[in-house]
Design a protein around this nucleic acid. Structure first.
Lengths: 227, 227
DNA sequence: TTGTCGGCCGATCGCCGACAA
DNA sequence: TTGTCGGCGATCGGCCGACAA
């Protein structure tokens, strides 16, 4: 999964530490994402926080819901490794928000987007900066849009600029996308223009499936997952 | 699951031994239903057949395909138990075919039943002996049919007697049933009238899911399943 | 600029008798 | 007796501009 698309779907709030950086692993925080409550009184030897090194990161998406999540492998640090650069290494990751001009756009689906007549109102800004350039000399201006989702599957949409006043719309192909992805009003859609010009599409569910996610039986001492 | 409906779906070929009867368990026959081939050379101590007693029987149906199957618990017999009544007890179960007048009817779905216009041609015999009595004084004669499937779910059909020449048809409700059950031409449908007058409906798939069925990891010495 | 609505046109669904096997 | 077909009316999906927030 393309990290660029992953970040666009995860949103600016989600910050992932760089590989090999030093972080704290909080067992209790992790346990709150588990399916069943964990009684820490049964495990008195578990410390509240464990200094770790990030040894690997996987950017993943749930195969059914398209929701993105990251899987990080954490290696506990030895006694002497902990002390050094505790301030510098452990807080303040790279702020990847202010990298360059944002080449993605997110919109929360309205009732009309999700239900009515199978169309999608494209905000002008999204159509002009993310979508391929439209030939406005045609009457009406129309083009076919191809967008790859988090699984690499390609979706086809008819992008038209019409109506009075003029506005951008996705028509043919949109309702199929809504049905297949089981989108409802309140969910969000993300369009991303990658560096090589390809168009990608991701989704964010209004009701996040936290606790019911893909998190399964990760070993306490070696694995961690953030949803 | 009602054993009467189970037998109607399984067909007359399927014979189930009575409980507590003595049977032979054939490891090789059982293994041919397993997902992977079993190499018996690795287990030289397994005899070709094992005398057993049927300790319990469950009449079940697959929750997704509606295909019926039976789960039998077999208890190996001791040395001295085997010898007795080896002829009488081990072969020739009760022939439950010739019990009473058959109160069920099976029909293989034609192309027209499965695809065209969402209707089902009801054979005259089925309509007159299995379905509730139709009021032929009405014009046209119509009634609503309710039928319970193997999961206890109730399906509603419009039963009409019309056309020239007159024939029995299921119209409204039929295409929904075909779509939900994913029926295709060649599959069969079974209608059963239970003793208390209720109507039941079962199905038989043309392509039986043998080997892909619900059979999972049954212990060699204590469990057995027939599909 | 864009969310919602009613109009409307075409596609599909599904009920019908005709006909023949 | 019943399988298949073409006809056709009702329904639905989905594209459209009008209008207003």
């Amino acid at each position: 999964l393309d990290p660029q698309l992953w970040h666009a779907c995860a949103g600016g709030m989600a910050q992932i530490p760089p590989i090999n950086s030093k972080v704290y692993y909080f067992p209790q925080g992790h346990s709150e994402h588990a399916n069943k409550p964990v009684n820490f009184l049964e495990f008195p030897r578990i410390p509240p926080l464990i200094p770790c090194r990030v040894s690997s990161i996987s950017y993943l998406a749930d195969s059914k819901t398209d929701e993105v999540f990251a899987k990080m492998r954490l290696v506990p640090l030895g006694r002497n490794e902990c002390d050094v650069d505790d301030e510098g290494g452990l807080v303040g990751f790279s702020k990847n928000e202010e990298k360059e001009k944002p080449n993605s756009f997110a919109k929360t689906l309205t009732q009309s987007d999700a239900n009515n007549g199978g169309g999608f109102s494209v905000p002008r800004y999204c159509a002009e900066t993310i979508f391929p350039r439209l030939d406005y000399s045609a009457e009406p201006p129309v083009q076919t849009i191809l967008a790859r989702d988090v699984h690499g599957e390609v979706w086809k949409f008819r992008h038209i600029y019409r109506g009075t006043p003029r506005r951008h719309l996705l028509t043919t192909g949109w309702s199929n996308f809504v049905n297949q992805k089981k989108l409802v009003a309140g969910d969000s859609i993300v369009f991303l223009r990658t560096e090589n010009g390809d168009l990608c599409v991701g989704i964010q569910r209004a009701k996040t499936g936290i606790g019911c996610g893909p998190e399964v039986s990760s070993g306490w001492s070696t694995g961690a997952a953030a949803n």
